[in-house]
Amino acid sequence: MKRAYLILAAIAAGFLSGILGAQLVHRLEQGAQTGAIRARRFELTDERGRTIAVWGTDSQGSAVLAFSKPRGKDDQAAVDLDDPRNQRASMGVRPWGSPWIGFMGSDAQPRLEISLRQYEKPLLVLGDQSGGRVSLGIDEGDAPGPATDDWSLTFHPEYRAAIGMVKLHGKGQKRLTGFWSINNEPMKFH
């Protein structure tokens, strides 16, 4: 009797394994047919096995393709590419849906960034170790809103020079007008 049970159990196990195996093979075949590889993260390593680029999600929740700074032969320290400050070049989409492309200096200060700002209006910023120097695109001012519609090429800090267009209001009408401004008085800067 006991032997009969064992035989039945073995048959049942074999039957189930067969079904599972068939399902697995079927799914693998499907994947191969569509060419899709699914993973949460891809990492590119150099000849020494050090991670030099990742494609995944960083510590801020952005879906990002990020590259690390160049590293010397003896530099074995791990670089955490999940930290945006270590992403020398990056492109991706922020958790709130804003896409960007960025280049970072070795001092972790942005040198170039193209992004969609709030309300999906684009802005290109070029900068150096002291911050943004040139911006081209939407001028959000200090109160960004859906109606913000000022566009300019501006040199910073403190609006040293700018050229662009703004909306003018008056007597119930809205009109676009161009402007330019230059502040050529020397300014202390450090």
């Binding site: 801020q60 929740g61 922020r94 958790p95 709130w96 942005p110 960034e113 700002r117 802005l123 910023v125 900068g127 911050g131 943004g132 911006s135 959000e140 001012g141 200090d142 109160a143 960004p144 501006t154 910073h156 403190e158």
Partner: peptide, 21 residues
């Protein structure tokens, strides 16, 4: 309900910005 950091909200060129008026 905006997960942006204050640094990202301000951006690199603005002097000041206001939220939740």
């Amino acid at each position: 309900q905006d997960s942006r950091t204050l640094a990202q909200f301000l951006g690199t060129v603005a002097n000041a910005s206001t939220a939740n008026w």
